[in-house]
Simulated assay, not measured.
Amino acid sequence: MIDTHVHFWNFDPVRDNWINDDMQIIRKDFSPENLLDVYSDLNITGCVAVQASQSEEENHFLLKLAEESEIIKGIVGWVDLLDPNLDERLSFWQNHQIIKGWRHILQAENRDFILNPAFIAGVKQLKKYNYTYDLLCYHNQLENIIQMVDQIPDQPFVLDHCGKPDVKSGDLKAWTANIKTLAANPNVLCKVSGLLTEADWQNWTEQDLFNCFDVIFEQFSPERVMYGSDWPVMLLSRPYQDWFNVVNKYTERFTVAERRMIFSDNAKQFYKL
């Protein structure tokens, strides 16, 4: 089994200022060693390390961790897609085959950034190098994401954290409609990950999460969904096992082959692990 979404960092209060005082449990260092026991208990064999900082230094940091730890099977790094020398940078990173794709923290950007023709042109260059692109956004940005994706029909995309629905309020109407539109693009996959931090951290219910899963699996089908944890951010709500158990319980309704897609095959195919 593959966990398609984890982060590692040596905590820096300035760089990582998004980790505020209400998040004491993750205001510390996290390394692959911290996952070994839980992965062993759950028979998870590897992970995809996803950027948490927007610099090329982050790529070097994750590459060093991958050299030291066998559990990192792939890296989603960061590169400046607005860089006039982007082609040169992508060519450089081709020297590191474990880097499978790229991500920008679009949830922190506005519509003008997401739909900037220069940014879209940057994403279009990824296909030349067979790179994937992770889409990180809030539910109220999905319409902009759809407009962006529509312009790049041959780029492999994956939506992180189900597009961050408003699990806490339970108002899923607009999110559901946008997920349906986005999922109509066959080049877009979705990670079932990161929902605990969109829910009421302490008081979410299994049904709160299942309501979101219903939409994701109906629209994307098991053929285009992959399991991820969003560890260590999800620790703000619960231990790793709790999230895994919820996803595992929900997917019991699927066939063995479909579960293999969700927990392994889709990730291997998408990220070329």
Rank of each mutant, 00 (worst) to 15 (best):
H5F: 12
F8Q: 02
W9F: 14
V14C: 03
N20Q: 10
D21G: 12
D22P: 00
Q24N: 12
R27Y: 13
P32H: 05
E33Q: 13
L35A: 07
V38I: 15
N43C: 14
V48M: 09
V48A: 13
V48Y: 07
V50M: 05
Q51E: 15
E56G: 09
E57C: 06
N59C: 11
L62F: 09
K73R: 13
I75P: 11
V76L: 06
D80A: 05
D80L: 05
N85M: 11
E88W: 03
F92T: 03
N95L: 03
I99Y: 05
K100V: 00
G101R: 02
W102L: 02
R103W: 07
R103V: 03
H104W: 07
I105C: 00
Q107S: 01
E109G: 00
N110W: 12
I114Q: 00
L115R: 02
L115T: 04
N116A: 03
I120R: 12
A121F: 08
K124V: 01
K124G: 15
Q125R: 14
Q125E: 15
L126R: 08
Y129R: 02
C137Q: 04
Y138W: 12
N140P: 03
Q141M: 08
L142R: 09
L142A: 10
L142S: 11
I146L: 15
P156L: 05
P156H: 08
L159F: 10
L159C: 11
G163T: 11
V167S: 00
K168I: 06
D171A: 09
W175K: 01
T176E: 14
T176L: 05
L182V: 06
A184D: 12
N187S: 14
N187K: 06
C190Q: 08
L196I: 03
L196K: 08
T197K: 03
D200N: 13
Q202R: 10
W204T: 00
L209K: 05
L209C: 02
N211F: 14
C212G: 00
C212K: 09
V215T: 11
F217L: 14
E218L: 07
E218I: 03
V225T: 13
V225D: 07
Y227N: 08
G228W: 05
D230H: 04
V233P: 00
V233W: 01
M234P: 00
D242N: 13
V247W: 07
Y250R: 06
Y250D: 00
Y250L: 08
R253Q: 15
T255S: 15
R259E: 07
R260E: 13
D265R: 07
Y271M: 03
Y271V: 04
